[in-house]
Design a protein around this nucleic acid. Sequence first.
DNA 1: ATATTAAAAGAGTTAAAGGTCTTTTATTAT
DNA 2: ATAATAAAAGACCTTTAACTCTTTTAATAT
Lengths: 144, 144
Amino acid sequence: MFSQSCKYAIRAMFLIAQRSNEGKFIGIKEIAEGLDAPQPFIAKILQDLSKKTMVISAKGPNGGFMLSESQRHTTLLDIVVAVDGNKIINSCCLGLRDCNEKSPCPVHDEYKLIRKKINSMLSTTQVSDYNDELSMSKLFLKDK
Amino acid sequence: MFSQSCKYAIRAMFLIAQRSNEGKFIGIKEIAEGLDAPQPFIAKILQDLSKKTMVISAKGPNGGFMLSESQRHTTLLDIVVAVDGNKIINSCCLGLRDCNEKSPCPVHDEYKLIRKKINSMLSTTQVSDYNDELSMSKLFLKDK
DNA sequence: ATATTAAAAGAGTTAAAGGTCTTTTATTAT
DNA sequence: ATAATAAAAGACCTTTAACTCTTTTAATAT
Ligand code: FES
Ligand code: FES
């Protein structure tokens, strides 16, 4: 469904959002540990998101990543599109080039509804929506 | 969502199911053309399905592939599991090793419902369900 | 029997995703 | 100013998916 990079990107953004509440930068090392993910790989992913101005980064001591007020309203769909492109939004699940009513594949009608729910989930969830649950360890960003 | 192999496998099975009604074998060449897919790749995929007894194959003149009466009841879920494994059934969409209620990721509750719909679509659809629509060109297995 | 047909088998290739490493640049604390 | 810190940049490596090619085996029509 999502590439590995995209999954990490979403989880990283949730984590940065949570820490951004405290007004502090969180370093790559801490992010990688918080997600149980390879640090250099996370670094590269965040570099991309930083270029796309979806996260603020700062070099030097006490540097790291954080989200501005407006960046905390980034949706999961924003992240998915930034990392994986927009194929999730409207492509055929059986791989036909065009998904439309003119030449539907056998599962088109059913999949259309599922895809709508996926898009809805992604577009209605913001990265800061679960700050509290994450802080209280009711939700998790890595395996226990 | 599905690997390329899996998408081709599903489409190939729909096509073989449709032709099996006529009681004839359909050759790889014709299948590849019917799906607008690379012939040697389709051959590989069908070889695997054949080994897993999900399709009958015959060598020599008038050979090819067809589905037995019972094989026509194969569901899309059977195909997906055979080709891509069972990760679709119960894995976390953010990549956590375990998806369960004990350590849910932020989208667990919502994704659980979506995954259920996907599984339902796959398990209730049989490869021969759309024979007629395919024959009448109301549904398609390749781009126009 | 022989030639032809068509899938099976399996090695080989290509491209993309996933992941690592080293060097550079910017910041800040001293 | 200098040293220490931490991200940026970009080259590099590894693995897997996607796809191809060649040879072999089996079946059938003549
Ligand atoms: S054509 Fe396949 S999902 Fe729409
Ligand atoms: S834990 Fe992520 S979907 Fe269940």
